[in-house]
Each structure stands twice: as C-alpha cells, then as structure tokens.
C-alpha cells in the first residue's frame, strides 16, 4: 500500500470518491462517465482495484474511503522504480532496441547536454 502510486487519472477518480463520499456505485459510475468518459465496467474495475489496495471500500453498493486523501498521499514513498518489461520483450531484443531505462546519471547528463547547447537564433 505504501508503494502504490496512483496515476493522474486514477487520482482524479479517487478524488470523485473523496469529494462525494459516501457515494453509491451507480452514482460514481455516472460521474466517472461524465468526467473521465469511462465505461461503467471500467469504473467498477478500477474501483475494485482500489478497494483491494485498501484505500476504499464498497459495501453493498455504497462506496466510502478507508483513509483520507491527506493520509494516502503522505504514505507514498518517493521511490524510483525501474521500469520492467515483465518478459514481454526477450532479453536480446531489449538489448537490440537499447530501450534501457534512463538512469538518473543519464538523465542528468542529457539535461546538461541540452542546457549547454547554444541557443538557436
């Protein structure tokens, strides 16, 4: 739970709950559709995921939170997580594509390269 980073859109969805709780799941689905243009099934899928993570709960059609927004975000750990391909690309192909994730050093190096490049007139 500490490691769970919500994506920006997921956050927006979570905000709907935090701002309107307690909210019925049908109402939630309606709002999600209006705000995010999500299908009903998508709403329920994401809701279930967040419930499994222990952030919200769904009691017979009524959705409430298990922690406040503040509490949640303060628990996020700032961790730099390596991107994984989870076996979707075989190792040799990954090497081929040079699709290695940028290390912080590489990022810094590149930023430097860009900053030092003379301005175009």
């Amino acid at each position: 739970m500490h490691d769970y980073q919500m994506g920006a859109i997921e956050s927006r969805f979570a905000d709907i709950i935090w701002e309107n709780e307690p909210i019925s799941s049908t109402e939630l689905a309606k709002r999600s559709e209006k705000l995010l243009q999500w299908k009903k099934s998508t709403t329920y899928t994401v809701l279930k995921r967040l419930c499994d993570k222990g952030i919200f709960q769904n009691n017979q059609g009524t959705v409430t939170s298990l922690m406040t927004r503040q509490e949640f975000y303060s628990m996020q750990s700032q961790r730099f997580v390596e991107e994984t391909f989870a076996g979707s690309l075989p190792a040799f192909l990954a090497a081929f594509t040079a699709r290695k994730p940028l290390t912080p050093e590489e990022v810094a190096q590149l930023r430097r390269m860009v900053a030092e490049y003379p301005e175009e007139s």
Binding site: Q5, G7, V81, E82, E83, T84, F85, A86, S88, L89, P101, L102, V107, L110, R111, V114, A115, Y117, E119, E120
Partner: peptide, 20 residues
C-alpha cells in the same frame, strides 16, 4: 530544439508501468 529535447528526456524517464 532545446525545449523539445527536454520534453523527450522527460518522457523517457521510466515509469513503473509496463509498456508491452
């Protein structure tokens, strides 16, 4: 050019998500 390169770098910082 510089701003564009910056944007490219920013976009390439890896996320945790899978890009299969």
């Amino acid at each position: 050019k510089k701003n564009y390169a910056d944007a490219l770098i920013n976009c390439s910082i890896p996320r945790r998500m899978i890009a299969a």
